[in-house]
Design a protein around this nucleic acid. Structure first.
Length: 805
DNA sequence: AGCACGCCGACT
DNA sequence: GTCGGCGTGCTC
């Protein structure tokens, strides 16, 4: 019998990032299992915290006196063996606390809330009682202990035993219940009762007729009322007369309850798609842990490949997990998956309420859903026996979490694939360089969909040189050719999509004569404009120079920072094309829940003819009447001080181009840019991913960047800028001798947004090829900087960061 | 994180 | 003298 539990406590610090031993009270010894939540006393006071049981045994791993588990929260484990192992791996690989990882993997409502309460004791004098409690049986400590005098007074009272502090550990998870109806009469009794009814008691008759059809089953009251056309008051009458029983039924909050599922059939595959499905299905059957890169141009039918491969996994009695970027988790997308797999689908995304997420999670946990579709955190869906994991748009940076634990869903997916012995499909029209390079080396198996379904041609892409436009016309966001094209679409009653690239907004300088962007002499990375210090800075090596007044390249005077907003663009377009009906989609207009879908529906219905938006319109839109796509400013992303700037620009342009000409009418794309010859733009123009990949790989090779090097970013922040800087230089000194001589350390440099929330940020970037002791070194670093954390210094470690700012 | 213990300045 | 300020170490 297990008497001792190893418990992971809910105290996210470096020192408590290990299990603590607790005695299991005899009454619960048969019941407590690893993965359950418990409440344990922790610390010298009366503090109680939630914890996760990691293992049970009969030997403590601690010599001292053990405390007892206070309460068991769950009847069944909420983290299974796989998930427990995953928390351990995730904590180690992202340098975060195991408890934080466990919390991240579970719905938010399962995180405990703590309330410190003040209670009277048997020895509380009446005067004390009225002063502190009034007529309340207990009061929240924070509510009464507002001043330092009050706190010390309370401490004295507590020491004298006149008041008691008590920690309440609250479980926020609430199950939604509804009334259910259950018959208490058998068939013959119902018939007899019917005979006794007063003539004309139609409602009661209907109720009895309804009860007769239940056959002992319980149905929800709402369902019953609707089916038999009785009102709730009649049900209550029935209850009083003893005909039926009302019971509490647990129901799921179904976010899609109102929408009918329209079943869809598997589409016929073309030869390439068939090869892909066959290969993936074979891997599923053989329990192979193959990672596939499904590389397919926009419109090549990747989704159909996913769906049919997932169907194959289900046919073998396994489950399937499909990850998509948050932004493409549109109602259309969900409908498509539910149309194929019906009620077996659980959907997880940020638009759901916490209660809805919890219910979807439980449906998965109980095995009631075999297919999960969701954004980043859905990679932790508690599916059993996974047969296939799909990650659509694998290059998307939203798969990487920005705060602790800083995990990449792709890494978690690969880990789970090893655990479940199942394949992973990474799909994209523009794979990340890392993924594509791994496919090149044979680590991943590459599957290519080069053809668009129905052989529809890719849209023609025209590049418009805004330098020339600027010379000919007054400053405008719209070039002459784009305006002509827009007018033409209005005349033909076709639709247009305009994208304003917000990335890198106003943060760099550009010459309007020659398109020159100022770069760092050491790093070949664009310099960032710092208005606070009036300098141009390199965020990699710290190089700094004054803001140029004339262009260093062409000596022109038209050098300035570049940027504009969607609202301004909309206003200008309304003046230029007064007949146009415009919808604007940006953070302002889509903030409200459901606004995003509403605007899209409005555009889809043809109510408007032009859609203006930021990056959010680049993905997933499929409107057959859109024949023109305009990118107003393709450059902005290129100006960012990030070695992935070209890659992101290429991906964005390729993606947004895919929005044009999706049906029978041919599409045309106009890209406005000050850098018409930039390779990212040129390759995007020709839909040439392979060309871009080869070129960009050379650039990465020259600059010693991923995928040739691995990267780790260390940030330090402090309220005092000098302290942050000083600690970073000390850290550099400490780090250098511990790392291989070939390893490159960049920095310390201040972060581009040097001050956030009154804290100053500095960063160091480590670039390495082989560094077997790096993890151990960084863990030591975290332990050693622990003491300084008290003085306000915060250290963060980000493995393979996606954003260097 | 949160609590107790422990060591220095301004007060009943 | 002590009350209470916060720096330091520990929590099974």
């Amino acid at each position: 019998m297990a008497e001792i539990a190893q418990v992971l406590v809910d105290v996210p610090t470096m020192q408590t990032n290990r299990p603590y031993s607790y005695r299991i009270p005899a009454a619960w010894q048969a019941q407590v299992q690893p993965g359950m939540r418990v409440v344990v006393p922790f610390g010298r006071g009366k503090r109680r915290v939630q914890g996760f049981v990691l293992s049970c045994g009969d030997q403590p791993e601690f010599d001292g006196a053990l405390k007892e588990i206070d309460a068991v929260v769950d009847l069944a484990p909420v983290l299974n063996t796989e998930m427990l192992a995953l928390t351990k791996w995730l904590a180690a690989s992202t340098f975060s606390f195991q408890i934080t990882c466990a919390q991240t993997m579970l719905p938010a409502v399962m995180r405990a809330k703590y309330v410190k309460l003040l209670r009277p004791t048997t020895q509380t004098p009446p005067a004390v009682r009225t002063t502190w409690f009034g007529d309340q049986p207990e009061v929240p400590f924070d509510q009464v202990a507002t001043t330092s005098q009050a706190v010390s007074q309370l401490l004295r009272l507590q020491a004298a035993g006149e008041v008691d502090v008590y920690y309440q550990v609250k479980n926020q998870a609430r199950r939604k219940t509804q009334f259910g109806v259950k018959a208490r009469l058998d068939a013959s009794a119902i018939t007899a009762t019917e005979g006794e009814l007063r003539h004309g008691a139609k409602q009661q008759l209907a109720l009895l007729k309804g009860l007769a059809t239940l056959n002992g089953e319980t149905v929800t009251q709402a369902d019953f009322c609707q089916r038999f056309d009785v009102n709730p008051a009649t049900i209550r009458t029935g209850e009083q007369k003893g005909w039926l029983q009302r019971v509490q039924l647990e129901v799921y909050r179904d976010p899609y309850a109102t929408s009918e599922i329209k079943a869809t059939q598997a589409l016929t595959l073309n030869a390439e798609q068939q090869v892909a499905v066959d290969q993936i299905t074979q891997a599923v059957t053989q329990d192979a842990t193959t990672t596939f890169l499904l590389e397919g141009v926009t419109g090549s039918g990747k989704t159909e490949v996913y769906l049919q491969s997932m169907a194959a996994a289900l046919a073998q009695g396994k489950t399937a997990l499909m990850l998509v970027p948050e932004i493409s988790l549109t109602p259309q997308m969900v409908q498509r998956v539910r149309g194929r797999f019906g009620k077996a689908v659980a959907v997880l995304h940020s638009g759901l309420s916490n209660g809805e997420k919890y219910d979807e999670w439980r449906r998965i946990q109980r095995g009631e859903a075999q297919v999960v579709v969701g954004a980043r955190s859905a990679v932790f869906a508690p599916l059993k026996d996974i047969g296939l994991i799909v990650m659509d748009e694998e290059h998307e940076s939203t798969y990487k979490q920005d705060d602790a634990p800083r995990y990449h869903a792709r890494q978690v997916a690969l880990w789970r694939s090893q655990y479940h012995h199942c394949p992973v499909v990474l799909g994209s029209a523009t794979p990340s360089l890392e993924t594509r390079a791994r496919a090149e080396k044979g680590v991943y198996q590459r599957l290519v969909l080069a053809e668009r379904v129905n052989q529809r041609p890719l849209p023609t892409v025209s590049i418009i040189d805004m330098k020339k436009e600027m010379q000919q016309h007054a400053e405008s966001n719209f070039s002459a050719p784009l305006l002509v094209a827009l007018q033409d679409r209005l005349d033909r009653h076709e639709q247009s999509v305009l994208m304003l690239n917000r990335r890198g907004f106003s943060s760099f300088v550009l010459c309007r004569d020659c398109g020159f962007v100022l770069k760092c002499p050491n790093c070949d990375i664009s310099l960032t404009l710092h208005m606070d210090s009036h300098t141009m800075k390199c965020h990699y090596c710290g190089h700094e120079e004054p803001i140029p007044r004339i262009c260093p390249n062409c000596h022109g005077h038209q050098i300035r920072y570049y940027g504009t907003g969607t609202e301004k663009v909309e206003t200008e377009l309304k003046e230029l094309l007064p007949d146009a009906n415009i919808i604007r989609m940006d953070n302002d207009t889509t903030r409200k829940k459901g606004a995003h879908a509403k605007l899209l529906a409005k555009f889809g219905s043809g109510e408007a003819n032009i859609l203006i938006g930021t990056q959010m319109i680049a993905k997933g839109l499929d409107f057959p009447n859109v024949t023109l796509v305009g990118v107003l400013n393709a450059d902005t992303g290129l100006g960012l001080p990030d070695f992935r700037a070209s890659e992101r620009t290429f991906q964005l342009l390729t993606q947004v181009s895919g929005r044009a000409g999706r049906a029978t009418k041919p599409g045309h794309v106009y890209i406005q840019t000050f850098n018409p010859d930039h390779y990212a733009i040129r390759f995007a123009q020709h839909h040439d991913y392979e060309g871009f990949f080869k070129y960009e790989m050379r650039m990465r090779h020259q600059g010693d960047y991923p995928p040739y090097y691995f990267t780790v970013q260390i940030t330090a922040s402090d309220l005092d800028e000098a302290v942050a800087a000083k600690r970073m230089y000390q850290l550099l000194q400490w780090l250098r001798p511990r790392l291989a001589s070939q390893t490159i350390i960049l920095g310390p440099t201040p972060k581009p947004i040097a001050r956030v929330n009154r804290r100053y940020y500095y960063q160091i970037v480590i670039k390495y090829k082989r560094e077997p002791n790096l993890a151990a070194t960084l863990t030591t670093l975290l332990h050693e900087t622990q003491a300084q954390q008290r003085q306000g210094l915060q250290i963060g470690i980000d493995v393979e960061p996606l954003h260097f700012m």
